[in-house]
């Protein structure tokens, strides 16, 4: 069979991009791609045509853990401190307003629950800002409140800690400085941390949680960033 007639080239390439070329036919086509430049050009033409459909889908923001996992797979951990600062730039973009609103809505919903929870245990001052640290499945792991005096952290029941590691909370400033440690997070129950004066001096881009040896970061920088979350003002 002459695979390289114009019509054959086109129909094979189109169905390969569409995903309906299967089994042995797909393998033969992949072999032809390697050997024949005209076949690659036909493939690129169909990728341009059909994948314009995919590129026009409304944006959906993946969980922050996806980026962390990519960094881990590429061995970027050594430069964690510098790459963490680049993450919080995630802003709602034109056409991407809905996922952003949905995300804020869910955070505010949890924030209200946090407020009610603190209300029940009789904490006197209302929180000024809250953050929810979410895991890979968007489950809430820690509820964090920033009050005028301190930082209150509650580990949720969904959090399963690694026993031989600690979890450290970091302030990531919008000005690009290295993340600043706010202290170790509780593995269960609640804990009050000191409110770092930087909260009043810089714009906070995000809070980050890192996985550390017991006792916290050995060198003052996050060892392995697991999660990030933005503060929401109530």
């Amino acid at each position: 069979m002459n695979y390289l007639t114009e019509e054959r080239k086109n129909s094979l390439s189109a169905e390969y991009v569409l995903g309906t070329l299967h089994g042995a036919a797909r393998q033969r086509y992949q072999g032809l791609l390697i050997a024949h430049r005209p076949m690659r050009q036909a493939l690129w033409r169909w990728e341009r045509h059909l994948n314009a459909l995919g590129a026009a889908l409304p944006e959906r923001q993946p969980a922050p853990t996806v980026w962390h996992a990519i960094q881990r797979r590429l061995g970027f951990e050594q430069s964690t401190a510098s790459t963490v600062t680049s993450l919080p730039g995630r802003q709602p973009r034109p056409g991407g307003a809905w996922p952003w609103l949905a995300s804020v809505a869910s955070i505010v919903a949890v924030a209200l629950a946090v407020t009610l929870w603190w209300g029940q245990v009789g904490v006197p001052s209302a929180p000024s800002q809250v953050a929810v640290i979410q895991g890979t499945q968007s489950e809430a792991l820690w509820l964090i409140e920033l009050t005028e005096r301190d930082i209150r952290v509650q580990a949720t029941e969904q959090f399963s800690p690694v026993s031989d590691k600690d979890y450290e909370l970091w302030l990531v400033a919008a000005d690009g400085r290295a993340p600043v440690s706010l202290g170790l997070l509780p593995k269960d129950g609640e804990l009050t941390l000191a409110r770092n004066q930087l909260f009043d001096q810089v714009q906070v881009a995000a809070l980050a949680v890192s996985l550390e040896p017991l006792g916290g970061s050995p060198n003052g920088s996050p060892t392995q960033v697991l999660y990030t979350s933005q503060l929401v003002t109530l």
């Binding site: 889908l57 993946p62 980026w67 993450l87 996922p99």
Partner: peptide
């Protein structure tokens, strides 16, 4: 790596929509 991080920020919403 910083350029790659910015590229991720700018494109991940589109690619995630396709995968989802």
């Amino acid at each position: 790596q910083q350029a790659f991080a910015k590229l991720y920020q700018s494109t991940s919403g589109r690619l995630y929509a396709v995968c989802l």
